[in-house]
């Protein structure tokens, strides 16, 4: 079994797993970072969204062998203290119902806000269309992204 050296949430970590193991399962089963969720396994629901060198990716569909020295940030590393603007906004708007998809939603939203500090509704549609919320908390997700933009820019 090959050994992979990964940089996750700014820490070096090593795992011995098969090369086709998706990053998602490395995070969840081998690194005990279970905040990243499994929903579909085919990059259709966004529950497994993490940042790879700052870009949002679906970790269920990226094998560990493709990570190399790129930096992985998961929900556990989105902020040191749980106070990233999207986390503050998510709390302020009371977004979650079941909460299962929200880590993926927040990772997509954080990546959007980095690229577009003042996203329009159309920007949100484009950036967040890949993240399913089965509870359909979408109205609050949209509102929270606008709120997070204000927090980030203030």
């Amino acid at each position: 079994m090959p050994t992979y050296s990964l940089t996750v949430n700014k820490r070096k970590m090593e795992v011995d797993v098969a090369e086709d193991t998706p990053l998602l399962w490395v995070l969840r089963d081998h690194l005990d970072l279970v905040g990243t969720k499994f929903g579909c396994g085919i990059a259709q629901c966004g529950a497994c969204t993490v940042h790879l060198d700052g870009n949002p990716i679906r970790s269920c569909s990226v094998p560990v062998s493709a990570i190399g020295d790129k930096k992985v940030i998961t929900i556990e590393g989105l902020s040191k203290d749980g106070k990233h603007p999207v986390q503050i906004a998510w709390e302020e708007i009371d977004v979650p119902q079941c909460g299962y998809c929200q880590a993926g939603q927040m990772m997509s939203a954080a990546a959007l806000l980095k690229k577009k500090p003042n996203p329009t509704d159309a920007d949100i549609d484009a950036a967040m269309g890949g993240n399913l919320c089965r509870c359909a908390s979408y109205l609050r997700i949209r509102k929270a992204i606008h709120t997070a933009a204000k927090i980030q820019n203030s």
Partner: peptide
């Protein structure tokens, strides 16, 4: 607000 908020938001 959802009692589990902090735990949900930090994974």
């Amino acid at each position: 607000k959802n009692v589990e908020m902090a735990n949900i938001l930090t994974g």
